[in-house]
């Protein structure tokens, strides 16, 4: 009995280790790459022994990239700033629009409510390329092309359906009796929404917001087509490292590390909060 469970424990440990290595290896590798020069990365055979250097990071932060072909100006830090503005802005807008909408869809069955909700979700199914061409033309006519406002608007295609559908589920899990009890206690509809529905769906709203943030941050195609150099986020900005004199792997790696750092940090921090929030049995009482 005992040694069988010991063997079991060993096997389980090994399996877990394999899974962790499989998923963590790319991140580890990219961190290692970001600390090497292009020459050491490209040498053959590759080696894990090298002298670490921070020159990739220095180049990114200073904005000047020295290559064999000469110096090159890159706008990585402003790209990073653009990513922050676009992602935070679109998630904020999507929350303001999506949470009340999700509440309405969860609590009120009206004619066509399912159709509207599904139409919103179907935005996620449509290939972005399909909408991009007409959008580009409209945006140029409307003067929205190459503005933060225009981009945040387009990003709602990514964020809004996500938030709407996830948060709706959380609202549906709250017993309507709890809200009725609060109203019978003498509180208005609006007070009930703010003090009962919002706090109880809090973990769900946080989860949806986080997911939407990651999707927005990782978006490439909308920004590539609709934004010029000074509005580009990091995903598009990283293209600048594909230079005439070759691909700057070291800088790309450093740029990747810098650009995934915020989402990674956010996910790690929110994970604790989410697990706590969900295990509270928030809606069970």
């Amino acid at each position: 009995m005992d040694h069988r469970s010991l063997l079991e424990r060993w096997l389980r440990g090994i399996a877990l280790a394999l899974v962790v290595v499989f998923f963590m290896f790319p991140i580890l590798w990219i961190v290692l790459m970001s600390l090497q020069t292009n020459e050491t990365i490209l040498r053959s055979p590759p080696s894990v022994v090298f002298t670490p250097t921070l020159q990739n990071y220095a180049a990114l932060i200073s904005g000047r990239l020295e290559t064999e072909a000469g110096a090159l100006d890159i706008a990585f830090m402003s790209n990073l700033m653009n990513s922050v503005i676009l992602s935070v802005g679109s998630v904020a807008l999507a929350l303001v629009l999506g949470v009340p909408a999700a509440y309405a869809f969860a609590r009120h069955r009206f004619r066509g409510s399912e159709d509207i909700a599904f139409t919103l979700l179907s935005f996620r199914f449509a290939p972005p390329l399909l909408v991009l061409l007409p959008l580009t033309l409209y945006f140029q006519d409307l003067g929205l092309a190459d503005t933060y406002f225009g981009l945040i608007w387009v990003y709602q295609l990514i964020c809004l359906p996500l938030i709407l559908w996830i948060v709706r589920g959380y609202f549906e899990d709250i017993s309507p009796d709890i809200e009725l009890a609060y109203r019978i206690a003498g509180h208005s509809w609006w007070a009930t929404f703010r003090r009962i529905a919002l706090p109880l769906a809090g973990p769900g709203i946080a989860a949806a917001g986080l997911l939407a943030f990651i999707f927005a941050w990782n978006n490439f195609i909308f920004a590539l087509v609709l934004a010029s150099a000074d509005k580009q986020p990091v995903t598009v900005g990283a293209l600048a490292f594909v230079t005439a004199s070759g691909i700057q792997y070291g800088q790309i790696a450093a740029a990747v590390v810098l650009s995934i750092a915020p989402t990674l940090a956010l996910a790690l921090w929110a994970q604790r909060y989410l697990v706590e929030g969900l295990s509270l049995g928030a809606v069970k009482g």
Binding site: S175, A181, I184
Partner: peptide
Amino acid sequence: PPEERGVGMAFQNFALFP
């Protein structure tokens, strides 16, 4: 609306604010 009817109510599932 419910908040202006001046009633008190107790629920089968208690419906306490968690």
